[in-house]
């Protein structure tokens, strides 16, 4: 079928040094967009506590949501974490790292809060 295709033809299509890589010509515009979004999310985060726009009990949830959103913006716009073929290993690494981080933080808070409730009254290691 494709008997006419010589081994070199493929190399011309996909030079070895571009092996499955995404386009490297990332424009300045994309960085400016990422910076703008991050700036807005930061400003929103400060506005949550400096004004009374957000209902009091919802403030912690709003802060955490804005922080997670901003981390996502940084990962995509500045660290170029995408679902592209050259990025799948990086994405899996980040997913596993996120899992370990959540396990460490929530596991510690959970266990130590329980301990502090079960312990003597002077124990002060309470969660936030």
């Amino acid at each position: 079928m494709s008997g006419t295709t010589e081994p070199g033809a493929l190399a011309l299509e996909e030079p070895a040094e571009r092996n499955g890589r995404e386009d490297r010509g990332r424009g300045i515009a994309a960085y400016l967009i990422g910076f703008g979004i991050a700036l807005l999310l930061t400003a929103a985060s400060f506005a949550v506590v400096m004004t009374d726009l957000v209902w009091g009990p919802a403030v912690p949830a709003a802060i955490v949501t804005l922080a997670v959103a901003q981390m996502g913006v940084h990962l995509v716009f500045f660290l170029h974490l995408t679902s592209g073929p050259d990025n799948s290993s990086n994405a899996v690494t980040v997913a596993f790292g996120t899992f370990v981080c959540l396990l460490v933080v929530f596991g510690s808070v959970w266990i130590m809060t329980h301990l502090s409730h079960a312990g003597p009254p002077h124990a002060t290691a309470a969660g936030m």
């Binding site: 370990v100 460490v104 933080v105 808070v109 502090s116 290691a125």
Partner: peptide
């Protein structure tokens, strides 16, 4: 990722100790 996991440990430590004002 390893570095961030180290930060997560310090975050966990902070979250656990934040109530201990003495």
């Amino acid at each position: 990722i390893g570095d961030v996991i180290m930060f997560a440990s310090f975050f966990a430590g902070y979250a656990v100790l934040a109530g201990g004002r003495a």
